[in-house]
Each structure stands twice: as C-alpha cells, then as structure tokens.
Simulated assay, not measured.
Amino acid sequence: MQELSTAPLPAPPRAANASPWKKTVQELAAHPSGLIGAIIILLYLVVAVAAPLLAPYSPTEMDLRARFLPPAWAAGGSLQHLLGTDQLGQDLLSRIIYGSRVSISVGLFSVLISLLVGSVLGSIAGYYQGWFDRIVSRVADLLMAVPYLLFAIFAMAILGPGVLNLIIALSIKAWIEFYRLLRGEIISEKTKEYVEAARMLGRPGPVIIVAEVLPNVIHSLVVLVTLRIGYMIIMEASLSFLGLGVPPEVPAWGSMIAAGRDTLINAWWISTLPGLAILFLVLGINLLGETLRDITDPRLQARE
C-alpha cells in the first residue's frame, strides 16, 4: 500500500499577498522614468531638510567684494562659491539650497489643504447631491472662470507677502480640481453593487464613503496630488518673480530669477541656475505622476 506523502505543501507566492502599496513600489521600480522622478524628488527633499548642513554660507550673507562671481567652472570663478554669487555678493548655491524649502513647502502644503477641502466637499456633493451639490458646483464654476495666476495675484495683493499667505492664496482655488475629480468618481461608484450592499447592511453614508468608495478611487487622487504639487511650485515661483510671493529677505527661486533678469547677458547664472532647479524638480514630479497614473489606473491596466 502506497504511503501518503507527509511533505508540507508549497507556500503560496508572496506576490499574491503583497499589499497594494508594496505592489505599486515594485512596479514603480520597473519603470525607469518613474524611478528617476522619485530619485530626483528624494534628493530635493534631502537638500531641503538638511539645508543648514549643506549650505556653505548663510543665504542672506552679503560680500560686496565678491559680487557677480561666475560659477567655479567658468573663467574667473572660485571654489569658494561653486555656483557663483549674485549682485549683492550672496552665495548662489546657499540661496538655491534654502530656496528649495520655500518651493517644496508651499507646493506640498497648498496641495494637502486643497486635497482635504476638495475631498470633503466632493464626497458630500457626489454621494448626497441635491442642493449642496448645486451650490458648491456653481461656486467651483465661478472660480474656474478666473485665470489661476490672475486670481492668485489678486489674493496676494489682499493678503500680503509671506509663505503662509502664499499657501492660503494658492489653496483658495486649488481645491476645485480635487472636488470635481472626487465628485465624479463617487457619482460613478455609488451606483455599483458593493455600495448597494453596504446600504442594505445599514451602514451610514460617511462610513460607506470612507470605507468602501475612497479605497477604489484613491489612485486618481494620488496621481492628481503628485501633478498638482509641480504646478503649485511653478505658481509660487511666478508670484515670487512678480514680487508678490515671499518677502525679499527670504530666498526663493522665483525672486532669484527676477533679481538676475537685468544682468542676464553678463551674469547669466543668477537667473539660469534657479530656473534649472525649478525645471528639474517639476520634471521629476511629472515623471513620477505620469508613472503612478500608468501603474495605478485600472482602465490602463485592462488594455495591456
């Protein structure tokens, strides 16, 4: 009589039990463009957090004897100022390093505030609809009719310069994108079977929204958050360029570009290098956002 084998059954592959976040990280590592974008963002975050340790000088320290020094690799440059100095003799590398704090903080916090406000309003309007949906949608349509930069200029003229005021001014209108996205997603999802089953079980509306609907639309919010951070960084730089962003004593990339526009031919580095800092950061954010859209959108995955 043949004996039964007592060997343990093979364990199921771990990939099948992998969490959605772990799976997203693994797929992100398989996309070179998204991985490059994530590395760029990580480097900028490290620079912003460790600015006091990385900056060779104080961003506001002036040395009029070292005015308009070119970068170290150019003729007349000095290793003491690797990226040169501006018209006040301030070290450009130190100001770019500290400027990353302003751009990243404004972009991040303005988007987080907009995400919170837009998600709450969009969830309520999409699930319950009715008079609340009509009122909020009309307010959103009214704000959408005004160009974003013009609206931000008007808001900053009222609030005055400052990092906190800049975040508030950008958030006043930025919530609309999250509101419209989540409202449309919830209107589409609330008619599906799993939402009807949750209603039959007696679960209240807020619980259904948070526990049932949001997990199915979170990928859209993640992609939008990523892309809007890059847009907010450009808006912050635009307002600072116009003199309506942060105070003059605070180093910001937009104000640095504005300071060097009159000497662009003879001292090109004053405007060019902060502009490149903005370019690479926004490029990294967009690369990551596009990759997250490709690997988290179920409609795109179904076509593969």
Rank of each mutant, 00 (worst) to 15 (best):
F178D: 08
E3N: 13
A72L: 09
E236D: 03
L82R: 01
L159P: 00
G76M: 09
V217A: 11
K173S: 05
D133Q: 03
V47L: 14
L142Q: 04
L292H: 01
V47I: 14
L170C: 11
G37V: 06
I113Y: 04
Q26F: 01
A18T: 05
L42N: 02
F151K: 02
G289P: 04
I153K: 07
T291S: 13
A145T: 12
F154W: 05
I97K: 01
P56G: 06
D297H: 09
Y179F: 13
T296N: 07
V223W: 01
L287H: 00
L35M: 13
S171H: 12
I41W: 03
Y44W: 05
V106I: 14
D141T: 14
A155Q: 01
S220T: 07
L69D: 08
P161V: 00
T226V: 01
K190D: 10
P70K: 10
Q301C: 08
A29C: 06
G245C: 06
S255V: 08
L239P: 03
P204L: 04
S58T: 09
A72N: 12
L273P: 00
A66H: 10
L181S: 13
E290M: 10
L281A: 02
T296M: 12
L292E: 02
A145D: 09
P12Q: 15
E212T: 15
H31T: 02
L288H: 00
A197Y: 10
R180L: 09
A51D: 06
L79V: 06
L276Q: 01
A157C: 12
L82D: 00
G275I: 07
P274S: 05
A50I: 11
A152G: 03
I158P: 00
R101E: 11
A11P: 15
I285L: 14
E185K: 08
I39Q: 02
I278D: 00
R65W: 11
S137V: 01
A15P: 02
G122F: 04
I270F: 04
G245I: 04
I295P: 00
W269H: 10
L64Q: 08
I229F: 00
Q129E: 14
L239V: 08
L79S: 11
S271H: 11
P10E: 02
E27P: 00
V111A: 07
E304N: 14
P147R: 01
W21K: 06
D63G: 02
L276F: 03
A55P: 06
R293E: 03
R303K: 14
W269L: 05
I257W: 04
L244A: 06
E61V: 02
V106R: 07
I135G: 07
R199C: 09
Q301N: 13
F241G: 03
K23E: 03
R303T: 12
Q301V: 10
A7E: 15
L164C: 07
L28M: 05
P71I: 04
